[in-house]
């Protein structure tokens, strides 16, 4: 079928706009991170109260509540300027995500197939998933002010993707014309996209724990980060969401490879690096169940996984030639 050039141009335009909006959101939330400590600490404190609300281990037995009367809701807090800007940043993030989604959909309409048939499209979809995953995280944890740290790699990757890896809209080669393109690649996209979130959380975790051990280190930056425990929890939860999806993606890839290339596993570079990433994340999950490996070491393993994921997304096709080289870049 013919490629719809107009739609593809609109898609490109939306992509560029998305990057610009993300940069704005990055600046806004960075502002909140830098100047919004007060409001945020308050948020965290109230949050803590809700979480362990009904008495942590240190609760005095005398403080017996009246079980028949539900607790009063929290009184609304005053909102500071930095926090208002942070909220605007989050709103921009939502707007950017919507624009990026439209860019993906238009691309798909332009080429009449799943909009992830080459590296440019793949990178566009992965970064979209990362942003969506982050939106879920900031809904569940009071970490909106960290958005800038997540957006930094996202914006860099989107920039590389939109310049070096850009590919004009085109149909895909016969091997990619299969319903497995929908199943395998979308699972890989969701898995990899979500994997970028724990990577960022783990990096921040290292900063935070270094500061906790020695308050002189990162004295300005450290205290503004959420507690190490919160960062660890974000990393773990995001990883256990992404890991099964990624596993599913790899398994589907094997089933597809059996039909398309004649073998289900052939140590093609892309397969190999996916395998490595899988093993590294399995090691991360293990490390959290192994005495002496929790905490810092687990975070380091997660960051290794993050690096392998990025390498797999953006560089394998550039440095090696394999069957997966449908990148459309040369």
């Amino acid at each position: 079928m013919e490629i719809n050039e107009t739609l593809s141009q609109y898609s490109d335009l939306l992509y560029t706009t998305t990057v610009a909006i993300y940069v704005l959101a990055l600046l806004f939330t960075l502002f909140e991170q830098a100047f919004g400590a007060k409001g945020r600490l308050a948020a965290e404190r109230s949050r803590k109260r809700v979480l362990v609300g009904a008495g942590g281990p240190d609760t005095d037995d005398a403080a017996i509540e009246n079980g028949d009367v539900p607790a009063e809701p929290e009184a609304p807090r005053a909102v500071g300027r930095a926090e208002r800007i942070g909220r605007m940043g989050a709103a921009l993030l939502v707007l950017g995500a919507l624009l990026q989604l439209s860019a993906i959909v238009l691309r798909g309409l332009a080429v009449h197939r799943a909009p992830w048939g080459n590296m440019y499209e793949y990178g566009m979809a992965v970064t979209f998933i990362t942003v969506v995953a982050w939106l879920v995280v900031i809904k569940k944890f009071p970490v909106r002010h960290l958005t800038g740290f997540l957006l930094l790699p996202v914006v860099i990757l989107m920039f590389i993707n939109g310049t070096m890896l850009y590919t004009v809209a085109a149909p895909v080669v016969p091997a990619l014309q299969s319903y497995w393109l929908y199943i395998h690649v979308s699972a890989a996209i969701i898995g990899s996209g979500v994997f970028l979130v724990p990577g960022v959380a783990s990096v921040l975790y290292l900063f935070r724990t270094a500061h906790d051990r020695n308050p002189a280190k990162f004295a300005g930056f450290g205290p503004k980060l959420p507690s190490a425990d919160v960062l660890d929890r974000i990393a773990y939860r995001a990883t256990i969401v992404a890991f099964p999806i990624f596993t599913f993606g790899v398994l589907c890839g094997a089933v597809w490879a059996e039909a398309a290339w004649g073998r289900f596993w052939g140590w093609d570079p892309k397969e190999t690096v996916a395998f490595i990433a899988w093993v590294v994340y399995a090691a991360y999950l293990h490390s959290r169940a192994t005495a002496g490996w929790r905490g810092t070491r687990a975070a380091v393993i997660n960051i290794v996984g993050f690096s392998v994921t990025i390498f797999n997304l953006f560089f394998v096709n550039l440095v090696t030639a394999g069957l997966h080289s449908y990148a459309g870049v040369s």
Binding site: T272, F275, H286, T320
Partner: peptide, 16 residues
Amino acid sequence: LVLLFLLALAALPGAL
């Protein structure tokens, strides 16, 4: 855990 790491490391040259 260590073996898992070694496996990941050992697989790498095959990709490069």
